[in-house]
Amino acid sequence: MVFLFNIFYQFGDSLAFLLLAAIGLAVIFGMMKIINLAHGEFITVGAYGTVVSGKVFNLPLPIAMVFGVIITVIFGLILEKLIIRYLYGRPLDSVVATWGISLIVSQSFLVIFGPSYEGLQTPMGNFKLGEFSYSEYRVFLIIFALLILVLLYYLFMKTSFGTLARATIENPNISSSMGVNVQNVYTVTFAIGAGLAGVTGALYAPTMTIVPSIGQAFIVSSFITVVTAGASPFVGLVPAAAFLGMVQTSVTFFYKSTIGLIAILCAVILIIRYLPQGFSGLILKTRSK
């Protein structure tokens, strides 16, 4: 029983990390095709937004987290207006611009807040099972990650906004001729993506060291998860994260984390090779059969 729970806890923890790392990027890169190398910095903004607003205004953590997310959305909107909107349809140029943004943001945080900011304590407590003890907040993260994914799936696959957004990004010309304000759809979608990265930053802020490079811890995981999820990210994210998480946890369990890290990267290479449409392609194919 304890053993089974341990497996669930370890695997779930890894799953939650991959999912939450990927959610913002799933919108910005998965849907909008912008290679956002500044994704990590969006997460940084969310984390600093949470911690700094919590400290300065003495807010309780959940409210500080909401603040963090709002700040990231505003940050995303500004960026969209100034830079990103000139990059739609030029996905490869987005590499340079977002790399530049990433340099500016992480270095600005260093200049403004110094090399490190006082961290927060992880909320909730811990519980025991046999000889093991667990952080309650970590269990919450697992549940929350899955919940937010269900919400996103609903938003982008079931609501009229979702259909509009997907259609517009798929074919902006037709949407435009049908009277859709393409620019607005792009802006809102980008802001949602930024906000989701902010959610990730806010949620992980109390569990990590608050440094200007905090977001960079997520960047590799986020890209590999989104890519293995495939063309329809909200369908493919959970199986992709589950598969990668399983590879990582089991290899780390039997060998060591370095090999676990290498294994997850190799798994991505093989998935792209043998499942070019990613997990969402696989699911949609089996569903249509």
Binding site: I83, V96, I104
Partner: peptide
């Protein structure tokens, strides 16, 4: 920061 600005 300047390097980033030039790139952007």
């Amino acid at each position: 920061i300047v390097m980033g600005l030039i790139l952007v």
